[in-house]
Computed example of a mutant assay.
Amino acid sequence: MLTRRRLLIAGVSAGTLAALAPVLARADNVKPSLPLKIGFVYVSPIGEAGWTYQHDLGRRAIEAAFGDKVQVRYAENVPEGNDSERVIRDFAADGAGLVFTTTFGYMNPTIRIARQFPRVVFEHATGYKQDKNVGVYAGRYYEGRYLAGIVAGRMSKSGNIGYVAAFPIPEVVMGINAFTRGLRSVNRDAQVRVVWINAWFDPAKERDAADALLAQGADLVTHHTDSTAVVQAAEARGRYAIGYHSDMSRFAPHAHLTAVTHHWESFYTRTTAAVLEGRWVSENVWGGIKDGMVALAPLSAAVPADVAAQVGEQQQAIIDGTLQPFQGPLFDQAGRQVIGAGSTLTDEELLKMNYFVEGVVGRLPK
Rank of each mutant, 00 (worst) to 15 (best):
V70K: 05
L299K: 03
F267R: 06
D56N: 15
D291E: 15
V221Q: 03
I318E: 01
S343P: 00
D306K: 00
Q316I: 08
S249C: 01
T222Y: 05
R112I: 09
Q54R: 14
V361A: 10
S158K: 13
V186C: 07
R363D: 15
S300T: 12
G58A: 05
L34Q: 12
F40L: 13
A273R: 15
I289C: 07
P329L: 11
F201W: 14
R6W: 14
T271S: 12
M353R: 03
A233L: 08
E48P: 04
Y146R: 00
V275K: 00
V194C: 01
V23H: 06
R89E: 14
E80K: 02
A49V: 10
V186Q: 07
N77A: 15
P365E: 12
R119P: 00
S227F: 08
L323F: 15
S84Q: 07
G153K: 03
A308C: 05
G312D: 09
F201P: 00
A233Q: 05
A236H: 01
L98V: 13
V164G: 06
E348P: 02
P109N: 10
G15H: 09
A166M: 07
G97H: 01
V195D: 11
A92V: 06
A92D: 03
M155C: 11
P365A: 14
N108L: 14
E63I: 12
L330E: 00
L296E: 02
P79G: 05
Q54F: 03
A75R: 11
P304L: 10
A125R: 04
V303R: 13
E349K: 11
T346C: 10
L296T: 05
D291Q: 15
Y244D: 06
E63F: 15
S156E: 06
V12S: 15
S33Q: 12
T126E: 11
K37T: 03
E123P: 00
A233M: 09
P32F: 12
P168T: 12
W196Q: 02
M1S: 07
L24R: 14
D208E: 14
V43T: 07
T258I: 13
I111E: 01
Y74L: 06
R363F: 06
G39T: 03
D320P: 03
Q130D: 07
T52Q: 11
I318R: 00
N29T: 07
S227M: 10
A93W: 04
K205M: 10
F40C: 03
T103E: 13
F201M: 02
R184A: 04
V121F: 05
T228S: 12
M107Y: 03
D56K: 02
T103K: 04
D291V: 09
T126D: 03
V303L: 09
R4Y: 14
V311K: 02
E277G: 04
A27I: 04
G321C: 01
T346G: 06
V303H: 14
A114P: 02
D247V: 08
P22F: 09
P118R: 02
Y142D: 03
N82L: 12
N284E: 09
G243W: 09
Q232M: 13
Q315S: 05
V87N: 07
N133D: 10
